[in-house]
Design a protein around this nucleic acid. Sequence first.
DNA 1: TAAGATACCTCGGATTACAATGTATTTTTC
DNA 2: GAAAAATACATTGTAATCCGAGGTATCTTA
Lengths: 112, 112
Amino acid sequence: MYGKFIDNWTIQLKKTILPLLILNMLKQEQLYGYLLIVKIKECTGLEITEGTIYPILNRLKEDGWLDCKWIEQKTGIPRKYYTLTMDGEKMLKELNSNWNTIIKDINSQIEI
Amino acid sequence: MYGKFIDNWTIQLKKTILPLLILNMLKQEQLYGYLLIVKIKECTGLEITEGTIYPILNRLKEDGWLDCKWIEQKTGIPRKYYTLTMDGEKMLKELNSNWNTIIKDINSQIEI
DNA sequence: TAAGATACCTCGGATTACAATGTATTTTTC
DNA sequence: GAAAAATACATTGTAATCCGAGGTATCTTA
């Protein structure tokens, strides 16, 4: 059985990619932490917890790639919505470019 | 300046991908640790040290994905060459398939 | 009204990664 | 031909990271 090795590696890879994924999701629409957990699960199958998502969002905000604002709900708890800053958009363009380069480099080593 | 964030993330991603890359390289030809360091640099620009490559190779061997044998050189130090086992080949097929799925999932979130 | 879901946040101990270090031979350089 | 640099293996201590667990609060459902 080789499932365990593959599972661990796959989960690790998805976690490494998280910032890229989160930034790209936030480029399309503003989102809050708890919803990101759900969306990431939908998109990648990866089940993360709050202990994973909030530190990442805080870090991206501290670095200046994200803004956030509290939005009151008609009903329910207020939510902290995140959006990309101008810097964040520029940075993301380069990050996506890097992502593509890496994929190309790696795929060049994978036989078809 | 956003280079630092991008650099760190890029390096981290490449390191996470290392096992996939190494296994695919070894599928094409038998290689030894020191040469892998050179080839990985050529392919991805990632500069790793022995402290990185040998533990990975040992781990892959312990797990049963790799075989190794010492080969004496006409001149120079003997080298420890690694090859894929049958299990390793099967596992790699699945690993590559996972890799493609992840790329597809992530790219679906990246605007063009 | 209790349980479960939504939504935020923090932190310390477990894990992990790798720089540094060590050995030995060969090649190059001056 | 001595010293330095390169080739090639291996290990390990600690520095950094990560996230499960735990905490607060409100809303919904059974």
